[in-house]
């Protein structure tokens, strides 16, 4: 099993994800430079946090046109497991693989802190190791994490059980306390918190470990 990690100019959590997957879970990884198109041999793809292409224009807006993401789109549409963390979540919404958009935090501040969350795994393949309504803590680190979506669509997401992770205390003004969303198929997960920073008690708890390890089981 090998996990692909997308690397854009400006990604900065790509090595953290590699460290978590290889160092903590013993899963081999392969970096996917943004110009690459070849995903064969990969069992899942992670789009990590950072500032893809400087996040100019809008977070994730330019990344959306990266050659590697054309392949990731086919991969996701064929049922492949795709995880977008922080900037990766923003990229997934810009690509339209997940609905809505992530906008400036309500109080305009960059927030970097451990955040209590509630998990409702539904059919999401990345969250099958978590219990229904399980309380966990993961670090967040973002300036643009306020989830916005049309009300009708939000109601649909809610009804379909696609809001798989919510803030227990809403830090950024996200609609419906959304911290993480999955697609209808449950194979694509986007979330603002950083599970890769919570895979070792020394660096921020262990609550992210089961998410990244879910693919191994």
């Amino acid at each position: 099993m090998t996990i692909g990690i997308v690397v854009f100019p400006g990604s900065n959590c790509d090595r953290d994800v590699r460290w978590a997957l290889e160092g903590c879970i013993d899963l081999p990884t392969r970096f996917l430079w943004h110009e690459e198109r070849e995903l064969s041999g990969l069992d899942a793809v992670v789009i990590p946090g950072g500032f893809s292409y400087g996040d100019y224009l809008r977070c994730g807006a330019i990344a959306r046109f990266a050659p590697v993401l054309e392949s990731v789109r086919f991969f996701a549409e064929a049922g492949g497991a795709v995880l977008g963390i922080c900037n990766g979540f923003q990229v997934l919404t810009e690509m339209g693989l997940l609905p809505g958009a992530l906008t400036r935090n309500a109080r305009l501040n960059f927030i970097c802190e451990p955040t209590p969350l509630r998990v409702n795994p539904g059919n999401c393949c990345w969250l099958k190791e978590y219990q229904e309504s399980e309380a966990i803590v993961l670090p967040i680190a973002h300036g643009e994490g306020r989830y916005q979506c049309e009300e009708k669509q939000l109601a649909e997401l809610e009804a379909n059980g696609q809001i798989v992770m919510r803030y227990a205390i809403n830090p950024n003004g996200s609609a419906c306390d959304v911290a993480g969303l999955t697609n209808a198929g449950g194979n694509v997960l986007g979330l603002m918190p950083h599970p890769e920073r919570a895979c070792d008690p020394v660096t921020g708890g262990l609550d992210g470990l089961r998410l990244l390890a879910s693919l191994r089981n």
Binding site: L57, R58, A61, F65, T93, E94, P99, G100, A101, T103, Q148, C149, E150
Partner: peptide, 8 residues
């Protein structure tokens, strides 16, 4: 498709 995100 590029300059604006019609969602927001």
């Amino acid at each position: 498709r590029l300059f604006a995100n019609p969602v927001i």
